[in-house]
Design a binder for these strands. Structure first.
Lengths: 159, 159
DNA sequence: CCATTTGACGTAATTTTTATGGAAAGCACG
DNA sequence: CGTGCTTTCCATAAAAATTACGTCAAATGG
């Protein structure tokens, strides 16, 4: 991981379908060298994949909510996670420190679906003690990729 | 938006760099027709863009946290949002209903950075009354794109 | 009911991009 | 100073994207 890889990530985060030639000229490399670097980043798992960013409202997913979940006992974890993985509407599942055990980001069509997801599905999972749902009214900012700190990466290289 | 567009979204969510020919064969279309459809989805804003999914840990962003923010008065909103937009570490900012006003998803290198972001930066924004930070220990699930409900889309077409 | 228009698609030709193989430059190591 | 390894570039062949153009079907309008 050097500065060039970094710039590559940054560019590919902004436009994941740019050609290697385009990216190469940003990087000061030829297209084969660029393709090779990106392939390596994928192999290393730095790049987990490429995806289209879909507007959730445009596909009828108008409602976003955060659902905090408390589990009765740790034994229920695996079963809980397994269920969560199967649920399309759960976009994120974080194991958190603090009052609750898990924080879910749920996206669905509307309140009716939310009711189904939270009251029926989540609460029916064995071990779920309680849930606390927070409705999202608007989302002024949402970026899928982590911030990039080039300076740190240079340091990381020096390891 | 018809069933084909839907399948296209679904495929492009899984692999954002697939060729139009590949996608076309999934869709039963030729590559020009495929490219045209995808271009239209972009124009309509259904596809907001294409991006590389970067592993945050691989780039030194090891810490994820949710920060709930309460604002004193609504007048502070614009200034607050403006500041939030400038902060790389804030990956998401949701305006929420309930006890708090905003819920931020923050990603940074470690606790030291979190301290800087929350205690120094966020709390120094005028109007921020209080914050409540929840540390993420692990993230079993995280998908950037919304769930797709083909059946609803077919209905939408019938409008 | 038929002619015309419009939109979407496929095929083929052209251009661009990617993949591949081979050679040279840089670098660590002995 | 040479050896082996890595990374790069260049050239060429293969593949993909783009463009142009003709066809078809559904919608439009007389």
């Amino acid at each position: 991981m050097d500065t060039i890889d970094f710039k590559a990530l940054s560019e590919l985060m902004m436009n994941g379908r740019m050609t290697w030639a385009e990216l190469g000229s940003c990087l000061g490399l030829s297209s084969p060298a660029t393709a090779e670097r990106v392939r390596r980043l994928e192999d290393q798992g730095v790049i987990k994949g490429f995806t289209a960013l879909v507007d959730h409202e445009a596909v009828g997913c108008a409602l976003t909510a955060f659902v905090a979940v408390s589990l009765e006992r740790p034994e229920h974890r695996n079963r809980f996670l397994q269920k969560i993985m199967e649920m399309q509407e759960v976009q994120e599942c974080h194991h958190v420190a603090g009052e609750d055990d898990y924080l879910l980001k749920v996206r669905c069509k509307g309140t009716r679906d939310l009711e189904r997801v939270v009251s029926d599905t989540v609460k029916s999972i064995p071990g779920v003690a309680r849930t606390r749902t927070t409705i999202v009214m608007s989302t002024p900012k949402e970026t899928p990729s982590p911030p990039l700190f080039p300076e740190d990466i240079i340091d990381a290289t020096r390891r």
